[in-house]
Design a binder for these strands. Sequence first.
DNA 1: ACAAGATTAAAACAGTTGTTTAATATGCTC
DNA 2: GAGCATATTAAACAACTGTTTTAATCTTGT
Lengths: 220, 220
Amino acid sequence: MFVLCMENTDNNFESSSDTRNRLLYAAEKLFCQRGFEGTSVRDITAEAGCNIAAVNYYFGSKEKLYEELFHMRLSEKIQGHMKTIEQVCARPDATLEDLLRELVRPTMESALRGDTWSRVVRFLVREALHHRFGRDKIAEELIDKFFERLAAAFRQLLPGLEKRAAWRAVLTFESLVMHPILFFEMYDLVLPGFTVKEITEQIVRVGAAGLRSCLKGTAE
Amino acid sequence: MFVLCMENTDNNFESSSDTRNRLLYAAEKLFCQRGFEGTSVRDITAEAGCNIAAVNYYFGSKEKLYEELFHMRLSEKIQGHMKTIEQVCARPDATLEDLLRELVRPTMESALRGDTWSRVVRFLVREALHHRFGRDKIAEELIDKFFERLAAAFRQLLPGLEKRAAWRAVLTFESLVMHPILFFEMYDLVLPGFTVKEITEQIVRVGAAGLRSCLKGTAE
DNA sequence: ACAAGATTAAAACAGTTGTTTAATATGCTC
DNA sequence: GAGCATATTAAACAACTGTTTTAATCTTGT
């Protein structure tokens, strides 16, 4: 989904009012901890140190606040990862492993650090599984563009890869990256003392071998 | 996680009182639709056609009702899948592809049909990401046993696979299976008209190639 | 210094939440 | 039929929900 788009640029609310930004920051923190329904407007305003009415004053409603947060974080990180793909694909000697590694490593570092973005991903997946807010056109478009770019990159690095096979490859790669982010507590139980490097290399190795196997296999 | 454990035995609440069973069934339906927090005790009792007090009378609390549902469904399906592994591994000519396929196909059929168990998986993942109820010892033990059996099966079908590599393989395989269940609406957007067979063969092909690549690769 | 607008504050709004109470109904054994 | 445990009911409980209102305060330009 949107997991692959990530950087380490935490908490860069820049524009407009101060309490407005404190509200965004507090909401992000609490939403990630307790989910959308589990967080009350009073919780948010208390964390932000302002009055209950502030949420409705600045955002109109609790849902609108969520939407703004969502779109902000998503487009931030999509842009970052598009750039990574461009950079790797521009190198004439780039391999499939190079691309996978450069996409996976920072993601896994973020997940193990448990920093903002990995918490945000979990929160967004949680709410997406809920599809409380229906289909989000803006998000869909962003994700679609990112997937399209990634599929093209796969076809460049894996000559002969059919179009539909490339789309399948994108989804498969997403599977491999999403899982550790969502369940990394379990990883620590199953693979005690696992490192960023171990999990990154596992995904790169399996991803590369798996994607290459899409070349020859019968499509359907 | 617990995705791999699934059968098509829907709605077999057998024991005890009638309204108690109707409560379990109604709660499962509504929890899957709207989540735990999104479902009120009044919703459940209305769906079950009984009084509001019934939930607390039979289960003590809304949370206890959730726990009973959770453990029931989980152990049901874990058992079913353990049996599948036994059956495949007993065949002298069994291949890795055979095992993966027999584990994946019914899972994908269930997900595409959108039947009870796939909805339950989504619900459980949603709540697990929330870790509202802390670590569940019963669930952890069940999952651990299943993972252990699956790792052993991988080592049988892939001679030379190291122990830790087998654990990594289990998690990786789980990644591949979990993703389509959680996001199969997206699959329909990215791969229009995709079939159970296409997605099953993709997972089996990538899974087998990926797992075999764990044989020679440097572990860490 | 004063008016205009943006921002904060306390309080109340109308609903909903999970749970409990006390009363009633039902089915059973003796 | 009395006694008893189980099951069901309507009503009330206190706490919490997102939002709105109304008033007070602060900031800014003139």
